[in-house]
């Protein structure tokens, strides 16, 4: 592990953690513009986090230690997950230790703790939020894994760094099967990040909420960490999507001059991706909770189809 690689790794994690609220602010601002509102500005999430960190955390009397440690566990696993995704460069020392399957596992770890903490206090909202989250997650996770298997088949490796190198730096080949994987991935992204067809990120105290119901009992710094982790999750998913389906611009190992270009590329891609997410959210209506399995089953089937198409078309190419 060279110091240069380590520097890239640290730089990437720091950038991911600190732009996370900005991406959320940008998506919210785009949504506001699409709804003919002025919007709160793209810096609003930072101000909210600042406010929450200064406030006292109120914890229910019957909350156990689990409830208190969960925000830290969730935030830590999100930071760790962010360190595995090649955002600027593929030479990540941490990425060698864990592949995409471990990444899915990390995201699952955060989710399990969040669900447990939601049920810990024993309020009705927390329990049903946790149950719904697990329903959505149980269906989204296999779909996400299938999406990952698709580029892994192409690159013959489950490490994200290797996949990106294979897709971005080898001679250009069109992979039709990636179209299926991309559709499936967008569907999983919407479901996992509590976006509109499945959940509404702006709702409070509504019977349809999922994510917000789980973190309803949190306040102060705990809530700030939960919100930040949630924003970071969106960044992780966006950068995974970019790494798998639009990898051009990510710097190769040892490619130092490529780094500023990579920063520019990822900025433009995240801006475009955030705007696209806002458009998707604005044109679609929230699904009934019982339609969510149908939505996610479609995502899973699209991912399976992608693998099948890959085996048919690339097998004899």
């Amino acid at each position: 592990m060279s110091p240069g690689d380590l520097f890239q790794q640290v730089l990437e994690v720091v950038i991911a953690v600190f732009i996370a609220p900005l991406l959320v602010g940008w998506v919210n601002q785009c949504r506001a513009w699409l709804q003919n509102r002025t919007g709160a500005g793209i810096w609003q999430p930072y101000q909210v986090l600042h406010k929450l960190f200064r406030k006292d955390a109120v914890v229910a009397h019957n909350a156990s230690g689990l409830f208190r440690v969960t925000p830290y566990i969730v935030f830590a696993s999100m930071v760790l997950a962010a360190s595995l995704v090649p955002m600027l460069a593929t030479a990540l020392p941490f990425a060698a230790a864990a592949d995409v399957i471990a990444l899915v596992g990390l995201l699952a770890l955060a989710r399990v703790f969040m669900a447990l903490a939601a049920m810990d206090v024993g309020t009705a909202f927390g329990s049903f939020g946790a149950r719904r989250e697990m329903l959505v997650a149980a269906l989204a996770e296999p779909a996400l894994l299938m999406v990952f298997f698709m580029p892994a088949l192409i690159a013959r490796s489950t490490s994200l760094g290797t996949i990106v190198e294979a897709l971005a730096h080898r001679p250009f080949v069109l992979h039709p099967s990636l179209a299926f994987a991309a559709v499936a991935f967008v569907m999983v992204l919407l479901a996992e990040n509590a976006r509109i067809p499945i959940d509404n990120p702006t709702t409070h105290l509504e019977l349809t909420m999922i994510h917000e119901a789980m973190i309803l009992e949190y306040s102060g710094r705990h809530l700030a960490l939960m919100e930040w982790a949630h924003a970071l999750k969106l960044v992780i998913y966006s950068t995974i999507g970019i790494a798998l389906f639009l990898p051009w611009g990510i710097a190769e190992a040892g490619d130092w001059p490529g780094l500023p270009l990579a920063v520019l590329a990822i900025t433009l891609k995240l801006l475009a991706g955030g705007a696209a997410l806002a458009v998707v959210e604005s044109v679609s209506a929230k699904l009934r909770i019982f339609r969510a399995p149908e939505f996610l089953a479609s995502a899973f089937l699209f991912a399976v189809l992608g693998v099948l198409t890959h085996l048919l078309l690339a097998g004899r190419a």
């Binding site: 069109l174 099967s177 179209a179 559709v183 189809l305 198409t309 078309l313």
Partner: peptide, 9 residues
């Protein structure tokens, strides 16, 4: 092939 995949989609 890409268009074929889109047709299937």
């Amino acid at each position: 092939n890409l268009i074929a995949a889109l047709l299937l989609l």
